[in-house]
Write a protein that binds this DNA or RNA. Structure first.
Length: 345
DNA sequence: GGGAAGGACCGTCAGTTCCC
DNA sequence: GGGAACTGACGGTCCTTCCC
């Protein structure tokens, strides 16, 4: 007398990889006195994978029970098991997206400015500034943390950002919040002006009034600060007042620095204007690239999490299916033992 | 310790897409 | 049609790890 259980499925236990929609798995028990003593048929329906994602197979078991089965072996794609480095990135991304916290974003721009100030290109501009104006500190080469801490009582705060006004002036905003303005001269930068904020320390929503001591004959000026998008305007008089504020709707992004065409007279000014426009374009493209990479990274992290979820779900489904099979076989064995009087081991 | 290798990040350019 | 935004590609820099 023979007993055979035929399970039509893939060797690795996955079902949807081997069966197409509409196919069936038969768990068939044969015995001599009852050729088909029990026939368990499970129907297979596929939800269909889209875009290479693994299809989920719904297996209907007798008694109305349904089991979702997903192939463990999926289409060629990066492994679910990641290197520790990538997992670290994932965890960070999860914390960012799931918590919805903005604290990282708040400190991000500050950090970015600090990092930017260490970059050679920015350092070069600043050092150019400082070559003719000793009041502007040179940005030193990278120091160790101990050195930075030891020298962290600066008499002049290190600039965090440098911008160029619509009239070609350089404006450096130090990390302490002070603003310094220098005009480019024929042989370098001239006329450094240090601004102090009248309401520094107690930032108010809206505007920050900035005054600088040096006399200036220039008319109203504007300059554009990326990220926070700050506008500074000079008032007339002996003590011009600069205002730092958020851009208004009447001052759309991208035109803040635009000088009126009528103010351009010489080819040199045209060249300066072209340079300025190029700087603005590069700056915007820089920001766009940064944003693009951030989105791409976020998307990759999301996809990674999704794959991990799918993989765990797939394993759970397989476990359910195998447990059901085991239970059925155990019941079958008990039944046969009872019928034939076999002793259990 | 120091050089090589590899990865992460960035800025820039150029091409494409989107929108007015 | 033209400007703005987006994105892939490329090269550079910095950092870490590994090997000698």
């Amino acid at each position: 007398m023979t007993m055979e259980t035929v399970v039509t499925s893939q060797q690795d236990g996955s079902v949807n990889d081997s069966l197409s929609d509409g196919e069936a798995i038969q768990i068939q028990n044969e015995s001599a006195n009852s050729p088909i003593s029990s026939l368990t048929q499970v129907s297979v329906g596929s939800s269909g994978g889209v875009g290479g994602s693994p299809a989920v197979t719904v297996v209907q078991l007798p008694g109305g029970q349904t089991v979702q089965v997903q192939g463990v072996i999926q289409a060629p794609q990066p492994s679910v098991i990641q290197s520790p480095q990538i997992q670290t990135v994932q965890v960070a991304a999860v914390a960012e997206s799931e918590d919805g916290e903005t604290t990282e974003a708040v400190s991000d721009s500050q950090k970015r400015r600090e990092i930017l100030s260490r970059r050679p290109s920015y350092r070069k501009i600043l050092n150019e500034l400082s070559s003719d104006t000793p009041a502007v500190p040179k940005i030193e080469e990278e120091k160790s943390e101990e050195e930075v801490t030891a020298a962290s009582v600066p008499t002049v705060p290190a600039p965090a950002s440098i911008y160029q006004t619509s009239t070609g002036q350089y404006i450096a905003i130090t990390q302490g919040g002070a603003i310094q303005i220098a005009s480019p001269g024929g042989d370098g930068l001239q006329g450094l002006q240090t601004l102090t904020m009248s309401n520094s320390g107690t930032p108010q929503p809206g505007a920050t009034i900035v005054q600088y001591a040096a006399q200036s004959g220039d008319g109203p000026q504007q300059f554009f600060v990326p990220g926070s998008q700050v506008v500074v305007q000079a008032a007339t008089g002996d003590m011009p007042a600069y205002q730092i504020r958020a851009p208004t709707s009447s001052l759309p992004q991208g035109v803040v620095m635009a000088a009126s065409p009528g103010s351009l007279h010489s080819p040199q000014q045209h060249a300066e204007e072209a340079t300025r426009k190029r700087e603005v374009r590069l700056m915007k493209n820089r920001e766009a690239a940064r944003e693009c990479r951030r989105k791409k990274k976020e998307e990759a992290a999301r996809e990674c999490r999704r794959r991990r979820r799918d993989y765990v779900q797939c394993l759970e489904n397989r476990l359910t299916l195998l447990e059901l099979q085991r239970k059925k076989l155990t019941d079958e064995l008990q039944h046969l033992r009872g019928v034939h009087g076999w002793a259990s081991d």
